[in-house]
Design a protein around this nucleic acid. Structure first.
Lengths: 346, 346
DNA sequence: TTGTACGCGTTATCAA
DNA sequence: TTGATAACGCGTACAA
């Protein structure tokens, strides 16, 4: 690669001092520069296709105009949209995003954070529900700026963008109940995640409130928010002596797994089994049957978190530390009243 | 944020010169350092939790140990896996990855490349099929290292990892033909992409070779590799006076759209219509019916490209400039022999 | 309005 | 074996 053109090259070409070039190009409105000089510099910079080195600038300014982002799984469409939202908002404010996939692993999280800090990103967006509290505690202690995404803040002043998981889960159960279901199962996400725990709590409370069957066998926990785990656990549910007539999965992928399990057992959805997911990933409405689910504004979630963090970084009016985004129950064709046959059994 | 601890802090704590600290910690095996000194330095660094600044190091070394990556759509699961593969391979060699979503836009591509070059990434992985040749030409001219992913190289010496799209498309058509189909449609991707053009060419050749109906109305082009476009175009195909009995979509998303169109028109897949996709995204086997498709080794594609590029960066034995990865026809339940009814019509 | 001088945190080179 | 020095490219007090 040919040698980089530096500010000195431009200075020479414009017959001025490098510092003058810097002043001209950094575009501070208050800089007083003779119009003619400015023109010369701009022309020279254009001619040489000069681009300032982000590295040298970062070293000098001690900020990188870069945000880091921790995501458990880039291949999960839920996060894909969150990333897009965050990226768009960040770019809009002049920041770039460095993405780190943690594969939901403790170790990957630690190395990713280390990497981001080595690169001196100005702050991190943390979208990993499983992120160890130790890690978050470290960041807090070091006053390293961060924002939590789709997971609860433990400390009160942490920046966080979330949805009301308990309430949304309650609505899912209530919807099934209103269709006539009584034996409603919930496949929870890992209790180690705040989303998993909160949705399970909300579902449990709603089951009690609406007087569904309160059979503990109907509340099970998946090992991960994945299709495979959903499939495994749903199979067990459906092979129960008294199987549920409806399943509320802690996210769309888990529910997708439940759909596959139902098919393997030759159950028709929604005739023999109603299904509700959570997140409304793009795929949800393409399925057959289309998935009834809780819509989470994914793009907005990413964008809000990025903006919140940048506001804090730039010392702008901080606003509330915690933003709760609205959710919406999207009813599609995977839910219906329980079939007669099943109702008789119950 | 508390002040960063620098190499000078460690030097002071260990009572040595900063350059000594650098020597110890950069871990060159040939450095001759007294064991006792080394121990002191290591201890001090540990005590202070010292981490070298990647920025300062990059400035000095003129390399960042970072690769850039251009992707048209992070939310497309095909690319998600490619990214994972590339990231894993890069990390394995000590490189990080900065991802840029171009949303398939010329402008986004240009700004992304500019951004990556400003940050002085050591090289770029380009997975955008639509990437303007002008951009690639610029990179070539500036001798900026890059590798092309899933798109053909125009110049011969460019690094590229691809599959044989023509051959794979031919196999898809042949499979349908062997099932008894004669009226086979192809929904091509944009001709502006090499993948779109090559698959269309391969399909067309195979249609001729296997003596299918060579009706030009059966070869149509989608405006994008998306579900929405697939749906739109497939609808038109299925409303033809003589509709096809099988559709080969240029990728899985397009084919997914065709599936939705078929359902809207109350066609049963595969009874009334057979469907083949391309890429084998994770979703393909979860669908009902599961999608017959061409498997592209996505993880391997990303990993190979990253390794190729890094090898070249490090001046290691370059190996071939162009790697062709194998594909495989995965037959699932979305293809079957054409139904009697339909065959009679034909 | 512009130039001078210095420092951001490293590492390579040379001298001791 | 270790220390001193310079340089990577930029931005900014301060001086002129």
């Amino acid at each position: 690669m040919t040698q980089r053109t530096t500010i000195a090259d431009v200075a020479q070409a414009a017959a001025v001092h490098p510092s003058t070039v810097s002043r001209v190009l950094s575009g501070r409105p208050d800089a007083s520069i003779r119009a003619q000089t400015r023109a010369r510099v701009v022309a020279a910079a254009g001619r040489l296709a000069y681009r300032p080195s982000a590295i040298a600038r970062s070293l000098r300014l001690r900020r990188t105009l870069t945000l880091g982002m921790l995501v458990p799984d880039i291949a999960n469409p839920f996060f894909a949209l969150i990333i897009k939202g965050a990226e768009a908002a960040a770019r809009g404010r002049g920041y770039d995003l460095i993405l780190c996939n943690t594969e939901d692993g403790r170790e990957r999280e630690a190395t990713s954070i280390a990497l981001l800090r080595d690169r001196q990103v100005d702050g991190v967006l943390i979208a990993t529900a499983r992120a160890s509290d130790a890690m978050v505690a470290d960041l807090r202690r070091d006053r390293f700026p961060f924002a939590l995404l789709n997971r609860a803040a433990h400390g009160g002043r942490d920046l966080a963008v979330v949805v009301d998981n308990r309430r949304a889960a309650g609505r899912a159960i209530a919807h099934l109940r209103s269709l006539g279901h009584r034996r409603i199962a919930h496949i929870a996400g890992p209790r180690s995640t705040t989303t998993g725990a909160e949705r399970a709590d909300g579902a449990r409370a709603a089951v009690r409130r609406t007087r569904c069957d309160a059979d503990p066998a109907l509340f099970v926990e998946a090992g991960a928010f994945s299709e495979a785990e959903g499939h495994r656990v749903a199979r067990r549910l459906l092979l129960l002596d008294e199987p549920p007539t409806a399943i509320f999965g802690a996210n769309d992928l888990i529910t997708l797994g439940a759909l596959r399990a139902a098919r393997e057992l030759e159950l028709m959805v929604p005739r023999d089994l109603s299904l509700i997911g959570f997140n409304d990933i793009p795929l949800a409405e393409l399925l057959e049957p289309a998935l009834t689910t809780i819509r989470v504004p994914q793009l907005e979630m990413g964008a809000t978190a990025a903006r919140l963090l940048i506001d804090r970084l730039e010392g702008r009016h901080a606003g509330p530390a915690r933003v709760v985004l609205p959710t919406e129950l999207v009813v599609r064709s995977s839910t219906a009243a329980p079939a007669e046959r099943v109702r008789r059994i119950a």
